[in-house]
Design a protein around this nucleic acid. Structure first.
Length: 517
RNA sequence: GGGCGCGUAGCUCAAUUGGCAGAGCAACUGACUCUUAAUCAGUAGGUUGAAGGUUCGAUUCCUUCCGCGCUCACCA
């Protein structure tokens, strides 16, 4: 999309005229006395009489979002922090030069207004302007004033315009900020230390995913953007950080969809001397607190549904229980505990589920546990709208978690679901270096079998474990997805300020031409 | 990657069976000293995403490409 040369040039001319009036085109600062929200908060309840004696003198800065000129007077709405305040500009009050400036202002310009508060004939709290200060020019026209910016692509590409025009978008990101703030406060209060571990790693480990690859020139070395901070954080528990956490980005070179963005934010935490149930309690409590901090209550709207995050509403069930509970009616007999133990048993379950019309891939060569996990996702996940903890995961899909003492095919691992999304994943951390080596070797076999996402051998990590890692529970929480749940956003792109999009090729070319001239 | 859909003025949207490409807002000129979707009078604004094809004639039909959305597969 080309810049509108016509409007752009007209506004540049106006800017020159503003300079000719003695106002700098790009001034350095404006000493405001109040923000717009402060004025609305402090004086929104006062009557016209109360505002008259004594007069309330204010200086306010903001962006012009509506403007109505009427000969020798006019009104405008100035927006700051997403809120709007009306100003009344009269030639008698601002003087000839002030009024010349007023006539050169456009929608989108930033101005400073000095004046006193009053109520208009229709009762709206306004500033009776006595002095206007030009602060910055909007050279490009803002979108249409009552439909705002609707085009989804433009909203993501030009998020700055989206934020100016659509107050609800601003709200979403304020809530996201509160969410992160709340979690950080909670973990800090529990004695966790916030750290930052490498995002560029020689080997991308700690999760099952395909990484992005990059290259360091001086070292002439390939590096991978991390898919998880897990292995570094656990090295830190070896080093004596008994409670550590990190809030930052992970990168996974995989599909994009309503729940997936190539870069996403996770909170990952490790707590020594506890197991998966201990870290689960910590996680659940932190989320219950976050809902309170972000929304002021315990319930959030989720499309047609309402999610109740209050403590008593969380369900807990094992993966096997969930599969049984949500077993499709048409799939005949519900599974027994024995069915999950053998290839034959699981194959029979898959056949019955497929017979019920459920789409489920099956590979006889893959470990039984992988199939069970796929089975769970196929039939149970869609029922998990209310906060639900699913625990006990197959060892085959959990190469970094401790096995159950009595059932080595199953691990002490949980995932938290809400709104049909996986939101958190935690487990009793495997700290036996020899077992860890065997798990990596099993993953290497999966890799040879063609699974590009299977975990690689990490010798340094095994060395770290060999120095002795305390027993610990660890968890990763998907903050983007929590933000989605707390803001009723049904695509992850609505909670990421600048989601990944293909580049605008045409504009790039046109802009290059423009700069050359 | 597969399937479906969308792309028209800066923004939000129209355009009959294939028959002169339009409106509102924004912009420009003028009037207006309490308006709030301000009003009134006038003006300007387009390679209909791109390229090609069919046709006397294409926004409309066909092909390819680009971008976006939804969905399936994979993934958290």
């Amino acid at each position: 999309m080309a810049l509108d040369d016509n409007i752009y040039e007209i506004r540049r001319e106006k800017l020159k005229k503003i300079e000719a009036l003695g106002q700098p085109a790009y001034p350095r600062k404006y000493n405001f006395s109040h923000t717009v929200p402060q004025i609305l908060g402090e004086y929104g309840g006062q009557t016209a009489e109360e505002l008259e004696a004594p007069r309330v003198n204010v200086r306010v800065a903001g962006r012009i979002m509506a403007i109505r000129l009427m000969g020798k007077a006019g009104f405008a709405h100035v927006q700051q922090d997403g809120q709007r305040l009306q100003i009344y500009v009269k030639k008698d009050a601002v003087g000839d030069a002030g009024f010349e400036l007023w006539k050169l202002l456009d929608l989108g310009d930033h101005i400073g207004v000095r004046g006193y508060l009053f109520r208009t004939r229709t009762g709206e709290l306004s500033i009776h302007a006595e002095e206007l200060t030009f602060l910055s020019k909007d050279l490009l026209p803002l979108p249409e004033k009552w439909h705002g910016l609707q085009d989804v692509e433009l909203r993501y590409r030009q998020r700055y315009v989206d934020l100016v025009m659509n107050p609800e978008v601003r709200e979403v990101f304020l809530k996201r900020s509160k969410l992160v703030q709340s979690l950080r406060r909670y973990f800090d209060a529990q004695g966790f230390v916030e750290v930052e571990t490498p995002m560029m790693q020689p080997m991308a480990g700690g999760a099952v995913a395909r990484p992005f690859k990059t290259h360091h020139n001086t070292l002439d070395m390939d590096l991978f953007l991390r898919i998880a901070p897990e292995l570094y954080l656990k090295r830190l528990t070896v080093g004596g950080f008994d409670r550590v956490y990190e809030i930052n980005r992970n990168f996974r070179n995989e599909g994009i969809g309503w729940r997936w963005n190539p870069e996403f934010t996770m909170l990952e935490a490790y707590q020594a001397y506890t197991d998966y149930l201990g870290i689960l309690d910590t996680t659940q409590a932190s989320i219950e607190q976050a809902v309170q901090d972000v929304t002021g209550g315990t319930k959030t709207k989720w499309g047609e549904d309402e999610i109740d995050w209050s403590h008593g509403n969380w369900r807990r069930m094992t993966m096997r229980e969930a599969i049984t509970k949500f077993w499709p009616e048409k799939a005949d007999a519900t599974p027994t505990r024995e069915d999950f133990a053998t290839h034959e048993g699981v194959k029979a379950l898959v056949d019955r589920v497929r017979g019920a019309g459920v789409n489920l891939a099956y590979d006889a060569a893959e470990p039984v546990g992988k199939t069970v996990a796929a089975l769970f996702e196929a039939i149970a996940e869609e029922h998990l709208v209310q906060p639900t903890i699913i625990y006990e995961f197959p060892t085959a899909v959990s190469p970094l978690s401790k096995q159950k003492p009595d059932e080595p095919d199953w691990t002490e691992r949980f995932e938290m679901f809400a709104g049909k999304m996986e939101v958190a994943n935690g487990f009793s951390e495997l700290n036996d270096p020899e077992d860890q080596r065997r798990r990596f070797e099993a993953q290497l076999k999966e890799r040879e079998r063609g699974d590009e996402e299977a975990h690689q051998m990490d010798e340094d990590y095994i060395r770290a474990l060999s120095y002795g890692m305390p027993p610990a529970g660890g968890v990763g929480v998907g903050l983007d997805r929590l933000a989605m749940l707390f803001t009723d956003s049904h695509t992850i792109r609505d909670v990421i300020l600048f989601p990944l999009l293909r580049p605008e090729k045409q504009v790039a070319a046109e802009d290059a031409e423009k700069t050359e001239k």
